[in-house]
Design a protein around this nucleic acid. Structure first.
Lengths: 265, 265
DNA sequence: ATGTCTTTGTGAACGCGTGCACAAAGATTG
DNA sequence: CAATCTTTGTGCACGCGTTCACAAAGACAT
């Protein structure tokens, strides 16, 4: 998962576990697809498959919302779409500002997934005066000087930070001071925010590093034989101890070997 | 967290819990920053603060890697950077392909965080013939027809999918058939992949929806008073039952009220 | 060398999330 | 109306992850 919860300890938000909340959008997406195909009802088994989760987990998730299913039949697609949307707060309009209109910010501004889910990009904000007035995604970029005014006038409570790491903390402080209470942070920094403010973090580099870890492990298993099998606590002092016998070449050599996807124990 | 683990049940990868692996890049980033400021050693307390986690958690995380600290002193920054990098497999070179060079794909291609961590963008691939040859991030876009050849020749084992949802599954199949075993998926779809292939998912829309949920809850607490307090199992049949009394206006009204960040229970 | 002080590394307890397995509920058929 | 069959909703047990709290380890001073 490319995300990273921050803050919000382990508090259940109202009886609905955080883990469940994180899956609701997944269900909603699958249900929307079914709705578009005019499928009237769906069983937990089918829906779970479409959402990529276990059916028992799905049923338990839904049980936190209430009893919206019919035994022997399944769930009414339209009704469930509505209930989940309402639970997530997507039946109302959420104005959002994007701060930092670089490559990523522009990509976000153009991203279609926002509008379709009750989110509306209210403004694009950048610190570069040269950007001001330039149209991005059919909308003029505004200067950081007007940040507070924009937030106020549009009643924005959700902000997206796509600035360089160095600017993120300061931007978050201005957003919060102006009234924003939820931040989606793409800058590779830990934001320190007051209580009552939610921060979610997306770090592309971190995701890749996690993949690299597993990738290395796969390669090590096949080239090295059983580097980790013995359960050695690892480590002498220098490098190249455990898995990475021939580090630079491992990427290639390993790759060719495991082409046929082994079974995972 | 913007991520979503997929596959890889609850298997510990070698004694290192998945949750720990997910935090290692965080520590690494904080350590790199310290290293650049030539800080020689750091205590678990300091480092934990910089990474935004609990110090006990950090120490336990490090204990899975081995005993790299010195009691009474702390951790040697340079040494720890090296150990974590090695553990994550970042001491070797990881060629990566990006498929789907739209706004997001281009943003990823330009993203600096890759190169600095051992990742190298080996190729940019797009299905649009009009894109072929066009330079993006100083690199010519190549056509999907050559996908297999590119993977083979560069020994690519990690692929990034930034295509529209409809194309993602097919692209993933081609990537996997050609030898890719780790995929970072930005398309809003559930990829179905064989065992042995890791998929991590980043969905911007999902992150926003999770924020909206908490945001709605904050607004509801203040405007509605105690809509959820009574613990009503919720639900009649139509809408507007529980929290969302005046749905359309709630965004604005709520926002102005909670401006001073309440304490969170 | 001895004592004090700092900080790590970890045993143990706790809580959340997951998955199994089944009883309850209702649809459907005869 | 009774029997059967499907599918939900959930009690329960298990395992992972987090956190506490403290003993062991080593630096540093005397």
């Amino acid at each position: 998962m490319a995300t990273g919860r921050t803050h919000r300890p382990a508090t259940r938000s109202r009886g609905i576990p955080e883990a469940t909340v994180a899956r609701l959008p997944l269900y909603l997406r699958a249900l929307t697809a079914l709705s578009e195909r005019s499928v009237p009802t769906v069983s937990s088994e089918e829906l779970a498959a479409a959402a990529g989760v276990n059916s028992a987990k799905l049923r338990k998730d839904f049980s936190y919302l209430g009893s919206y299913g019919t035994r022997g039949v399944g769930y009414d697609v339209e009704y469930l779409v509505y209930q989940i949307s309402r639970e997530l707060g997507l039946t109302q309009d959420w104005p959002v500002v994007i701060v930092g209109i670089g490559n990523l910010g522009a990509a976000l501004a153009n991203y279609g997934g926002f509008a379709s889910r009750g989110f509306r990009v209210a403004a694009l904000i950048d610190a570069d005066p040269a950007m001001a007035g330039k149209p991005v995604a059919g909308m003029p970029v505004q200067h950081t000087d007007d940040l507070e005014k924009i937030i106020e006038e549009n009643g924005v409570s959700i902000g997206v930070i796509a600035t360089p790491a160095g600017a993120a903390q300061q931007v978050s402080e201005r957003l919060i001071a102006a009234g924003v209470t939820s931040i989606l942070n793409f800058a590779p920094t830990v934001l320190s925010v007051p209580d009552g403010v939610d921060v979610r973090k997306v770090d592309l580099s971190i995701e890749l590093q996690i993949l690299a870890f597993h990738e290395q492990r796969k390669a090590g298993e096949e080239t090295g034989g059983g580097a980790e099998a013995a359960g050695t606590p690892a480590e002498g002092t220098t490098g190249g101890a455990s898995g990475t016998g021939a580090a630079p070449a491992a990427g290639r050599a390993g790759r060719r070997l495991r082409a046929q996807g082994r079974a995972r124990g």
